[in-house]
């Protein structure tokens, strides 16, 4: 599970994350939404230990990210929005490297690496250098690498962007399966349809603050008063997007 308490991150005068309190239990798929620049990616980096908080704490699978960093990281799997991977390694070699770093036994790697490559239709590309992969293929290999070491907590930043429809479907199914097995999934996304279909609960962040949190039904009930329908309307209602509707019509 993920436990975030009073988390603050500032960049100069800008408070990117402002006193965030959030708990995502084991087995839940949590959707983290918000407009661009709201602080979602900063939150992801704080959870995964890529940034140090100015205040507050993050616990991952019971380990404090600041003081028990390696244990927390061992329990974590990250899929960033831009999956830069070593261009001079082949896809299979990258998986092999990740397998060793996370302590996956060799026999397990021998079995799972070909399986994962096949799952993402990368078997023919497994021996090619990653520099020749497209964005979507790199995204797939990053997801495959995370699945290889079976983390207890999975943090994804826009995981579906760049994937073809078939792979996107595979990823959605995988996330559901993993959650059923008890994996915590924390997912940033702009694709509201995915949040609607996958996430048990959704949090909406605006200017570094968590302005809404709850199940979809709870959020829709909250927004119904203003006549909003569906998550998109809820999102726009909460983030002030309706103000631009007339401008968009004009354009």
């Amino acid at each position: 599970m993920i436990e975030i308490r009073g988390l603050v991150k500032r960049f100069g005068d800008l408070t990117a994350v402002d006193r965030l309190d959030l708990t995502v239990p084991a087995g839940e798929i949590f959707g983290f939404l918000g407009p661009n620049g709201a602080g979602k990616t900063t939150t992801v980096k704080l959870i995964t230990g890529l940034l140090k908080p100015d205040a507050g704490s993050v616990r991952v699978a019971g380990f404090d990210v600041a003081s028990q960093t390696l244990q927390a990281k061992r329990a974590l799997g990250l899929i960033p929005d831009e999956p830069f991977v070593y261009p001079k390694l082949s896809g299979a070699e990258y998986l092999r490297f990740i397998g060793e770093l996370y302590g996956v036994p060799l026999s397990e790697q021998k079995r799972r690496i070909p399986e994962l490559l096949s799952l993402f239709e990368l078997t023919d590309w497994g021996g090619e250098l990653l520099e020749s992969y497209s964005h979507g293929m790199r995204q797939k290999i990053a997801i495959a690498a995370v699945l290889l070491h079976e983390p207890k907590v999975l943090v994804l930043d826009e995981p579906i962007v760049g994937l073809d429809p078939k792979s996107a479907r595979v990823v959605k199914e995988l996330l559901r399966t993993l959650a059923r097995r008890g994996t915590t999934v924390f997912m940033c996304t702009h694709i509201l349809e995915i949040a609607e279909k996958l996430c048990a609960r959704v949090g909406i962040m605006i200017s570094g603050r968590l302005t809404a949190l709850g199940t979809l039904d709870e959020l829709q009930a909250k927004a119904k008063a203003s006549g909003s329908q569906g998550l998109e309307d809820v999102f726009l209602s909460l983030t002030g997007g309706h103000e631009y509707a007339s401008l968009l019509r004009h354009l």
Partner: peptide
């Protein structure tokens, strides 16, 4: 980020 988020000091 690969090493930054991995369990390696």
């Amino acid at each position: 980020w690969v090493l930054g988020s991995a369990p390696v000091s």
